[in-house]
Nucleic acid binder design. Structure first.
Lengths: 278, 278
DNA sequence: TCATACGTTCGGTACAGCCGAACATTCTGG
DNA sequence: CCAGAATGTTCGGCTGTACCGAACGTATGA
């Protein structure tokens, strides 16, 4: 039951359905596995169940299209029904459907990859991505909780929080170096965030991936809380340093337009309130 | 989905897990429901199970992020984990990740919405969509099996099949009118497909939605079979009729580039073989 | 040729999933 | 302001199903 070992824990709460939890873990295993799929035996081993049980789960998922049975060959990959559900999920998030035209515009204008993240308990979760014309494709997964301290969107979100909240959040996750430029010290991060606050946008200067930079700015919901952030991503060498501020203002402007659509206050109208927080 | 009768049937095959099947149906119900979610009682009614059972299922899905518990308020919507899984699913389809840059280019060049569909047993399933700059956003769901006879991508796929196969497929689905322009008669459809075959691209002229047109062309996998189709979608009035052919050639060219990437033959090299089929 | 992997089928049994009843809580309308 | 009906939640207990292990046929490689 309560195996505390490294892997996922079997949380056998009374109000949870075991076979469903297993089926979900099965999908996660397929998702994290190689793109060309895994065999049934592989899945059974990874899931820790017998082959027959795994087969029953996989069959059930496959008949609904959540898994895809690519026979012959390695076997199971994720199915097209997940594309459908993911697409609908993005539309059910109000922000997703509202932002898409703005992202297209922003990607077209900046020739960079534009993204939008929602704020999930202080963590950024990117829910939409639009590649700019001719832009290089980056490895930018959607729908995942990212660490907040090493991305422009994440830092923009952090910048709306109080010092205490920021310290608490960083205490949870720790500040792990992802490149040589990652800020791994809370005080430096706070300085950096103060700068972002005064500029109205946050910059990720090769802190998440070598040679890649991002610029992000937050938008606010009707209740005044930080709802998320938009950001653009590009190759460091493509943009002269003196144009960074101009780009920041552009992103800031798009974020304000999102705020307006959501019925929230623009950043400039809030700036005082944010800086006044303890 | 393919619910023939009113409600889905409880297919209790030996090799299927009931609770998992129910959980999946629960997600489908949430997906097909209103964007702002449904209450637990609504879900229980729609699923035909008791509230306690539904709660256990929903809780299990929610703890994994597949469902989102938007409290307070109507309650359950699809969760961000589905965005993640859907994104990975698109990347696990080889065509998805390969086509995206081409779609961006195509959308940028034509100023229209570009899409790519894979061929799933003769039916088109759109797996990727890139909106062009300033293009109107259409209701274009991803990951769904669409009817083949009323879309450019679908007709392009049909055009690679034999008359017997086409008749069989149309017999399955029937030819239902979606607008006043939909082709509802098999012989007319065959004529239309012959035209598409000779042109190298298929046209949907307001046959799926009033005022909307599409142009699509097929690409081929390494084994020579039809792997899918790319298409562009726009507003009928925006394009003068005499430019239709030019647009078709453009789409044809992009489809050929996909074929090359997949290691398949270009359309022109196959045309003879296709027309020679019984 | 054998040996070892694979996916699949099937019985039997323990236990997990399911329902219904009863609970607290919020919403609705008179 | 209160009655009534909706909601979400908890719990006991029986039923039946989800699970495992063993045995099957088949594909792959030594």
């Amino acid at each position: 039951m309560q195996s505390v070992s490294g892997g996922d824990v079997e949380v056998a709460s009374r109000y949870t359905v075991r076979s469903v939890a297993r089926a979900i873990r099965l999908m996660e295993i397929v998702a994290d596995g190689p793109p060309d799929g895994q065999s049934l035996s592989d899945l059974a081993r990874a899931l820790g169940t017998s082959k027959s049980t795994t087969l029953a789960l996989a069959r059930t998922l496959a008949t609904s299209g959540l898994l895809r049975d690519t026979r012959p060959g390695p076997r199971y990959t994720l199915g097209t029904a997940l594309i459908r559900l993911g697409d609908i999920a993005r539309n059910q998030l109000p922000i997703g459907s509202l932002c898409r035209p703005l992202l297209v515009e922003m990607a077209d204008l900046t020739k960079m990859t534009a993204r939008v993240a929602i704020c999930d308990g202080g963590f950024p979760v990117f829910i939409e991505r639009v590649d700019g014309p001719g832009s290089v494709r980056f490895h930018t997964p959607l729908g995942q909780r990212e660490v907040p301290y090493a991305s422009a969107a994440g830092k923009a979100i952090l910048a709306t929080m109080s010092e205490a909240e920021i310290r608490a959040l960083c205490g949870q996750t720790g500040l792990q170096a992802r490149t040589a430029h990652t800020i791994t010290d809370v005080d430096s991060l706070l300085d950096n965030l103060a700068l972002a606050r005064s500029h109205g946008f946050a910059v990720d200067d090769e802190e998440d991936a070598e040679g890649i930079f991002c610029v992000g700015a937050t938008f606010f919901g009707y209740d005044g809380s930080c709802a998320g952030a938009v950001s653009v991503t590009g190759i460091k060498g493509d943009l002269p340093a003196w144009r960074m501020n101009e780009l920041g203002q552009t992103v800031r402007r798009y974020a304000d337009r999102v705020s307006e659509i959501l019925g929230g206050a623009r950043y400039s109208d809030r700036a005082g309130a944010i800086e006044a927080r303890p």
